[in-house]
Structures are given as structure tokens and as C-alpha cells.
Design a protein around this nucleic acid. Sequence first.
DNA 1: TTGAAAGCGCTAACAT
DNA 2: ATGTTAGCGCTTTCAA
Lengths: 341, 341
Amino acid sequence: MATQKEVAKLAGVSFITVSRVVNNEGNVKEETRLRVEEAIRRLGYFPSHAGKALNTGKNGTLGIMTPARFGDGMENAYLMGVLRGIELKCRERGQDILLSPMNEDDPNFDFLRPYRQRKVDGMIYVGLRQMPEEMRNEIARRLIPCVVVGDRPAYPYFSWIDTDNETAGYETTRRIWEAGHRAIAFHGLNPGIHNANIADRERGYRRAIRELSGNDADESLIWRADFTREAVRESVAAGYTRAKTKPTALFCSTDNRAIAALEALNGLSLRCPDDLSLVGFDGFIRDIVFSPVMATNEQPLTEMGKAAAGILLDRIDAPDLPRREVIFPVTFVDGESLGRI
Amino acid sequence: MATQKEVAKLAGVSFITVSRVVNNEGNVKEETRLRVEEAIRRLGYFPSHAGKALNTGKNGTLGIMTPARFGDGMENAYLMGVLRGIELKCRERGQDILLSPMNEDDPNFDFLRPYRQRKVDGMIYVGLRQMPEEMRNEIARRLIPCVVVGDRPAYPYFSWIDTDNETAGYETTRRIWEAGHRAIAFHGLNPGIHNANIADRERGYRRAIRELSGNDADESLIWRADFTREAVRESVAAGYTRAKTKPTALFCSTDNRAIAALEALNGLSLRCPDDLSLVGFDGFIRDIVFSPVMATNEQPLTEMGKAAAGILLDRIDAPDLPRREVIFPVTFVDGESLGRI
DNA sequence: TTGAAAGCGCTAACAT
DNA sequence: ATGTTAGCGCTTTCAA
């Protein structure tokens, strides 16, 4: 592949002039520029990334860190939505995206390797799980440009993008209440698994129940499982079967849970919304389940991804920029799965 | 960030010795190695990618070229599945993946830029649409390491990974026939949009119909639309309404089409499979639609991605390796949506 | 407006 | 077993 040197030779100039032309630096006579450009075309010259990076310390690449896996059924609608936004912003700003295949089995997986290698200029953490503490410490200590999506690291260093899940949990519960439901169940995450988003939705649910009913939420109406669909299905079946007062609505903290819950209802020969209303959370279930059309909450995932990449790139360009915290609103979307009573 | 030089200074050796230790080259006294390793630890040294790449010409990165978009609803189950396989293989071989945000609006988008910049060592084309001819020519002419997934470039240069869609189309139609159906409709792609996979499925369908019924397929039972769900919905509604002999089964050339067809049936107040049996194609609809459980065809997307990355990496390591063509089988998966007659 | 020299961090080839 | 020299392709001084 051609180098500056070869282009320079063909154009009869020094390689530095080629560099000037390539980078539009001015201070090049029109005629010279044309000659150089012609040589570039003839040789199919394209500047090498490594040479440039070595000098400038910039890579034009953002790294994605995430414990989530690609392509695993629908598990990753969240990741994909955010990634889409990152992609859009990166396109605008002429950046590439580096995915570093992680090893889920390896608890010591080094998420920061791409940055250590100076393969990327900064990193975005899409955190379906919380960022490991060691990693957080290192990022803050070394002032690594990093933006977190979907979590709020309680650390004075990080910029983050999140949605207001507590409010969304509250408002959703309130909507369900207003539809006439009084026994409203919630499906959340097993204790021990940290997910700030889901935990916040649960807090919002509890606040709404307390406020609307005057009592604390009935713990027997709060069901839990990990992220697997089977576990959710079983927990819904078990929870519903055991419940003394049958709930008339189930607020699922994620759309995947809503799908699994719908499956559980099928298994129990119950119908939605006749026997149990369902409400999801995340904003992709409507592309998937259309009978009944599901009520859910939509997060502006693409916008969140865009914001994350934008903030990161600004920070990379101007390291002294203060950190940013951005909270996006969640939108409730009504649907047939939420029946009126 | 620390460099070899600084490590060398701290360890009291020359920088080349540091290089030797880092790359496990041997020819370093045990004691020296320990001293160097200690210095590396103390300084948090990590080799810079750019310096190494400049020398070796290797980046440890594979580029993905695809006209598909990320995160756009379920459109990309195919891409995600393949990407997952690529990810797995890259993890095995210590490679990163570079996504270059493309501009869908720009017909001259330069897919090869990352390679021209020597940011990647080779590229994988995940072709939901056919690779533009110019690009194909350049790749072949410049011997760019490249593997195509989901298409078979008729060009003596390319390695490719594909599934046997003609056979799958044939076998699927045969299954539907064996379930007792005689008026079997097919949903394919608008003329003008090239997609080898879908075209092959249609050819398989036509061959089966010819063989089983003794006649050519009834053109009024072959419906078409582009990739949007609305268009598919409308074409199914229109096709069914217009049909003189109503079909009892519809073979959809993709799962997205099957979903849209199901929506169309809902709209027409028809039931699946009572009024119209549906069969999909791609292997993710079962994660999505569960009432009725859909009959479909599964492509081993992850295996395909793994194979693509493996072949590409082998080729990068040994440029003289002959090109490879791999055809994966497609598996028919029965479901409630295919009724018996 | 142009060029020469130095250096980014690393490895390869050749000493010692 | 260790070091020296050169050079990968580029940009950043500084000089002409």
C-alpha cells in the first residue's frame, strides 16, 4: 500500500507536503496541491492509521464495554438500541466502534485492555450489570474518558446517562391503579443481582402502592427471578398460584419478563388481560408481541446512546470538560394487555 | 502512559529487552526477566497498539461491513446471530471487532475505509444485500482478506459462508405439502431488490410445487414486498383477499415476514393455523411469537459467524491459503402454526 | 510556500 | 544474553 513517501516522490515534493495536503493544512500552492492530489489518486494512497495515531495519540475509535452478549435472542434489545445511538453519533463525528469480545466465564476479564493498548480514545460502559469496583477505581484514578449508560456510578468521576426509572416505576403503577386495579403484582430481580434500573423501578412501584393504597406493598405480590426466561416463567406461575388474593395486574420490570409472564399465563390457561393484565418495560416488546398489544414503557435508547457517545467525544477533545449526568424520561405506552376494571 | 523506554530505564536494561520479555521471546535471563516484569507492574506498562502495528502490519482487529443497521427492532436478528459467532471466534483468537458506522443515505459509502487505513487486517461482509460491484472488484484486485456471509459472490476470489436456501425452500414446501396443504402461497421479495437467500428459497419453493403438483407455481399465490413490515402486511392482506383459490398455507421467506403476515391475519380477522397456516424462516421467531408456536427454519447463524471469522483469520495468517466455500444446513422446525389438513 | 530533522512506540536485523 | 541501529508512516517543530 502506498505511503506518503511514494506519493511525494511521484508528485516531486517532500513527504511533508503530502501530509499538508492530506490534512488540509493550507500553506500549499494550488498547483502543488493539485499535483499531490493527482499522485494520491494514481497510487490509491490512504493515510495509515497507525502512523498517525503514534503521533497524535488519537485513534478515532470508541470502545464498548459490556457484560452483555450479542445476538442472544432478544436479551439484548437494550444493548442494540444503545449501540445504534452510539453508531449514529460516531458516524456524525467520524469515529469507529471497537467491540472487544469478552469472556463471560472469566471474572477477571480486562475490559480496559483496548484502552491500555491505546486502541481506543475512550470507552462507553453499557451496564446491564454494575461495573466492577476495581475497574471503576482504575478509570477514575487514571482519568480514563468513560461514560456509563444505564447506571449511576456513585463516584465523583463518571459521566453517565440514565433514565428516571424510579419515576417510571411510580407512574406506571399509578396508571395501572387508575385502570381500576387494586391488587398489583410486581416482577423484579432476584436479590443478589444488582441492577440499578430494575431496583429503581421496584422502588417507584413501592412508593406508588404506599401512596395510593395507604399500605406498604404486599410482599407476596412481589415475584423475582434472574434473567432467564424459564426462571421468570416459573416464578410467575408459582407466585400466581400461591397468592392468597389473586393480583389482577402484573407490572413486569422488563419486557423480557413480560414475555415470559405471558408464556406462564398460557401455561396456566389464563388469559391476558382478562385474568391478568400485564405491563412491560423497555420499549421493544411491541415489535414482538402483538396479541395482545402490550402496554409498556419506552426508554429512548437510541437517544441515550447518542448522548453517551457525544459526551465522551467532547470529553476526549477537551479533557477538562466537567462530567455530565443526563437523565432521560421514560414514556408509558398503553396497550390491550392492560385491562380496565 | 508508560513506554518500553521508561520500563527499560527502571529495570536498568535496554528497551529491546523489555520487548523480549513482553513478547515472551526467550533469550532473557530469568533474573533480568523478573526485574523487567516488576518494572512493568510498577509502571502499569501496556504495549501500545500503534507502535506494534506500524512494525508488524498487523492490527489484531477484524472489520465488519454490513448495510444492515443495528438495533432497529428485530430487523437484525440475522446480523446479531452472525456477529455473536464472529465474537466467539475472535475471543478465541484474541482479536477485536471494528464496527464502522455507515451512512445508509450515502450510496458511495466507503466500506473499505477501515482496511485502507490499515485499522483492520481483514473484513467480513454480512450481506443482507448484495455487495456492490465496485467494492467486489477492488477487494479481488487488491487481494483484501475478506469473507462474505449469506451470499455467494460469483467471483473466483471470495471465500463465503452460506446456507443451502434452495434445498431449504424445497424441503419446507414439501413439509407443508405433506401436512395436507395443496394451495401453498409464498411470500418473497419485491423484484429489483437482490437477496440471494430469499431468491433461493423461492426457487426451492417453485421446484417443490412443480415436482409435487405437476404444475408450475400459481403466480397469484406468490406475494411480494420490500423489507418493511407495513408493506408485508399490506401485500399479505391484498394477496389473500384477491386470491381466487384461497391458500391454506403461506410460506414466508423470512421470520419478519411471518410476523407481519400474522399481523395481517389479525387485521383480516383470520386465525392461524385454522384459516391460514404460516411457516417462517430464520430461526428467531420462536423467541418472539409463542401463540401459535411458529413453524420455521433455523440457520446456524452463530456457527456461520464463527466459520467466517475462522476462515478470515486463517487467511490473514497465511495469505496463500485457498479460498473456502462453506454451506451450512438449514433445519426445519415444526410448530402449531402449521396445521394439518 | 516548502523542506529537513526529530521523534511517536515498537520490532527486526544485526552486532556484541 | 543483551544491546545498537534502523525503520515502520506519520506529525511536529524549526529553518529556509
